[in-house]
Each structure stands twice: as structure tokens, then as C-alpha cells.
Simulated assay, not measured.
Amino acid sequence: MRLLLTGARMQWWLVRRQPDDLLTLCTIPFTVLVLMSIVVHSGRADLLPNAFLAPVLIGLWGFATGLAAEVLVTERWTRSLELGMAAPVDSHPVYLGRVAAVLVLGVVPLAETWLLGWAVFGVTPTVHHPGVFWAAVGASLFAMAGTGSLLAAFMLVNDNGHYQNFLSFPVYVLSGVMVPVEHLPEFLRPLSHAVFLSWSADLMRDALAPAPVAAVGWRLLVVVALGAVALVGGRLALEATLRRARAEGSVAYA
């Protein structure tokens, strides 16, 4: 836990000194305005929860595929990855703490979306089941931290790989952040079950609706389980990558 908190403090220190890392927060208002304009001016009040949640989940995923995924790549570029590898303690909790600190910022798009909806369009959704909603947010942050650590290990393998767009838009479709999964083509629906955001999006939408939310515990468990699988996979992938780098003498870029 001490190493985890150390990594989180380090990442917060870096973010404060590199404000360009927060560019994702600058793009969220435009996403909100586009989606909310479509929904409000088409008279589809029933789609307001979708228009509110989509920018939130898009922003969260944007931090995971952007800043969080490049934590280790940045370490490699700055030649500080070797220091972590030479440390007498396991460096994985430190990197996980850095990833988790980044994803805490994923809550900010939620405030941005609600504020813009109220200020520009005069509408805000009613959270009929706040306990379920915030439990889904917490489970999603955990799952995104696990996913971020897996992506960070994957990015470290590639010398100059930046796959944010490739990893973003297919996930937005499969997870149904704006259009629910049941409206996807039949052959795509099974794939969405492997994307934790699809479970998060459905659960959050149900939390905004007045009807009782079904199978809350099971759905939260799926989100957490998918995040845990990614977390374990990220740790194993990082260990394998660093072990190969030591063997080949290729820790830093030439």
C-alpha cells in the first residue's frame, strides 16, 4: 500500500507540472455539446441519460488509453525505467499507483457533463438509485485501473506504438456508451460482454431510471472481475516484458 500511494503522489506531482496531460478534459465539453444537441433538439428526452453518460465513459477510457497507458513508455523515454527495475522492491505497485492516480481524474468528466447540461441546455438527469450509480462508478474506476496497467505493459513492448484511436472507437461501439448494446448487430453483441464498459454503461443507465435495478450485485461483480483479470494480466505482462528487456539489454531506447 505504501508503494501504491507513493506512485499516486508521484503521478499527481507530474500532472501538476505537465498540464498538457489533461487535454482529455478539454475535449469532453465538445463531446457533451454534440451529443446533447442531438438529443435535445430531436425531442428525445428518453435518450438524455445516454447523452450524459457517454462523455463520462469516453473521458474515463480516454485517460486509460492516453495518459495511464503511457506511464511506462514515458519512463522508458526518460531513462528512468532502469531505476525502477534496479530498486530493491517490486516496482509494479508504484506503476499501478500512478495509473490509479490518473484514472481518478476520470471522475472530472462527470462534473463537466452535469454542469454543461445544466448551463447550456437547462437539463440534468435524475439519479433515481444513487447507491447503485456510485457503486458502478467505483467498480468502473477499479476495472479501468486494471485495464490501464495492462495497456501500459502492452505499450511498453512497442517502440513507438500509439493505438489510442484503434483502442477507443471500437470499444465505444462494443460497450454501447451511447447506443445500447441491444441495438448492435447480432454478431457483435457477444463481444460486448468481454468489455467491462458495456456492463458499466448499462448499470449506470439503469441507475438513472426510476424502475428497480435488476441483478445489481452480479453486474458489479462482472465489472470488478473483468478489471481483476486485466490487473493480473497487466502484472504478468509487465514482468515478462521487463524480464525480456533485461535479457536483451533493451531497457532504454537507443
Rank of each mutant, 00 (worst) to 15 (best):
R17Q: 14
P55N: 08
L5R: 08
R17W: 05
A69L: 06
S140D: 14
G176D: 13
W134Q: 11
D46V: 09
A51Y: 08
P212K: 10
A152W: 11
W134R: 04
M1E: 01
G161M: 09
A45F: 00
G62L: 12
E70Q: 12
V108A: 13
A237K: 03
D159C: 02
G117F: 07
R189H: 12
L220K: 04
L53R: 02
P49F: 06
V32M: 07
D21A: 14
P210H: 07
W114A: 15
S91Q: 11
T65R: 07
L221Y: 00
P185L: 13
M155V: 03
P170T: 03
M204H: 12
L115Q: 04
A68C: 10
F154E: 06
Y253V: 03
A194P: 06
N165A: 15
G66W: 08
R98Y: 07
D202G: 14
T126C: 03
R17L: 10
G117K: 04
L242K: 14
L72T: 07
S200A: 15
A100S: 15
G138N: 08
A135C: 13
V216Q: 06
L60Y: 02
T74F: 12
G97S: 10
R76C: 05
P170I: 01
L47H: 11
Q164E: 14
S140E: 13
D206V: 02
L110H: 11
S198Y: 09
L115W: 13
L67I: 09
E248R: 13
A237C: 08
V132W: 01
V177Y: 01
G249E: 14
S168A: 12
N165G: 11
V127G: 00
L103T: 05
L116R: 04
V195T: 01
E182I: 14
L105I: 09
P19N: 11
F52C: 09
F52V: 11
H162E: 12
Y172I: 03
V40P: 01
V15Y: 09
L197N: 08
V213D: 14
P55D: 03
E112D: 04
G148K: 12
V232R: 09
R246H: 09
G148L: 02
L226R: 10
A225L: 14
F52T: 10
L48Q: 10
A135T: 09
V32K: 12
A54V: 08
G117C: 06
P29C: 07
P88A: 06
V179P: 12
V34H: 01
A86F: 02
L48F: 04
R17V: 00
L167V: 12
R79A: 14
T113W: 04
F52I: 04
Y172G: 09
L167Y: 00
G176A: 08
V102E: 00
R79Q: 13
M10V: 06
L25E: 00
L208S: 11
P170R: 10
A215F: 15
G106E: 05
M85E: 05
A135Q: 13
E75F: 12
V73P: 02
V173D: 01
M36V: 03
F142N: 04
S149E: 05
A240G: 00
L226I: 04
A237M: 15
A252T: 07
H129T: 03
